[in-house]
Amino acid sequence: MPPSIALRMNHALPAEHRDRLLHVAREASFPPGTRLFEEGGHADRFWIIRDGTFALDLHVPGRRAPVVETLGIGDLVGWSWLFEPYVWQLGGETVTPVRAYEFDAVAVRLMCLSDPEFGRAVEHWVGRVLSHRLHAARTRLLDLYGPYGSGGAR
C-alpha cells in the first residue's frame, strides 16, 4: 500500500482493522470514462483509490452531468453502502485510468456485524470521511473566491 494511503487511513482506522479490511480487497483497474455506479443504483461495492482521479456527478437533464467533487489518491469512493437503504446518492466515473482497491460491501457489512469492534472502527473511518466532505461542501457553498470573498454583493 502506498504510504500516503496508509497515512490517510491511519488517521481514522487502526492498523489491525485496516489490515483486516484490506485483506478482503480486490485490486481493480479501470480505463478513463468507466462509470462505476449511477444515482439510485444498489450500493454493493466501494473503492479506495490507489492512483488516478474519480469524479462524482449528478444527473441534470439537458447537460453533461455536472461534477460535484473529484476524488484522488487515498480517497474512499462510496459510502452509501454503509447506510440503509444502500442506494447510491450520486453517479461516478473515472476521469483518468484508475487503480483501486475494490471491496464487496455486503461482505464488509457482515464483518461489521460479526465483529462490533471492527464495525465501530469502520463506521468511525467512514464518518471521518463524511465529515471532511461535508465541511468541504459547506466551504464551497460560501463561494469564497467570489467578488466579495463570500461577503455577498452589496
Binding site: 469524479a55 447537460r63 455536472p66 461534477v67 484522488g72 463561494d143
Partner: peptide
Amino acid sequence: VTVDRPDDAWRGDVGLVTGLLDR
C-alpha cells in the same frame, strides 16, 4: 488545479484546494 464549480468542458479536479495536498 481544482475548481468549486466546473463547466461542461472542465475535465480537471472539482473540490477544495486542500484536497490537492494529497496529490
